[in-house]
Nucleic acid binder design. Structure first.
Length: 105
DNA sequence: CCTGGGGCAGCCG
DNA sequence: ACGGCTGCCCCAG
C-alpha cells in the first residue's frame, strides 16, 4: 500500500524518489506538479529541511537552468553524487540538462 | 555580473 | 494558533 503524504513536503519527497537514476529535475517542475508553480522556494526548503536525507535523492534536483543551485551537505557532494549516477556536471551546471530532465507530467 | 522583488512552506519563539 | 525569519528559487531590469 502506498503511503500518500498530504503535506507539501511529503509530496516533494515522494516525487524525488520517483526520479530515475541518471535523471534530474527542477524545483519548478516539482512545484508545478504540486500545482504551485511559484512554490519553487518551498520545494527547495522541503529538501533542505528534508528528514529523509539518504532516502530521498535531493541531489537529483537542480535549478531551472540546470544549475546545481545549492545543497545542504555541500554543493560539492551533490555534484559528486550526480557524476556517480552518470550525470555530467560542468562549471556547476548539468551537461545536456534538457536531455536528462525528468518530468512528472 | 549584481540587485531587487515576488511568493510559499518550514522552523522557532 | 500567530508572527517573523530563512531558503537547494525564479524573473526582470
Amino acid at each position: 500500500m502506498k503511503f500518500v503524504a498530504k503535506n507539501f513536503k511529503g509530496r516533494v519527497l515522494e516525487l524525488l524518489e520517483k526520479i530515475p537514476r541518471g535523471k534530474v529535475t527542477t524545483y519548478k517542475e516539482i512545484a508545478g506538479a504540486l500545482k504551485n508553480p511559484n512554490a519553487s522556494r518551498a520545494v527547495g526548503n522541503a529538501c533542505n529541511r528534508n528528514p529523509n536525507s539518504p532516502k530521498v535523492p535531493c541531489h537529483r534536483v537542480v535549478g531551472f537552468d540546470g544549475s546545481i543551485g545549492g545543497y545542504a551537505s555541500g554543493v560539492r557532494a551533490k555534484i559528486k553524487l550526480l557524476e556517480q549516477e552518470g550525470v555530467e556536471v560542468k562549471s556547476g551546471k548539468i551537461v545536456d540538462f534538457e536531455e536528462k530532465l525528468f518530468s512528472f507530467n
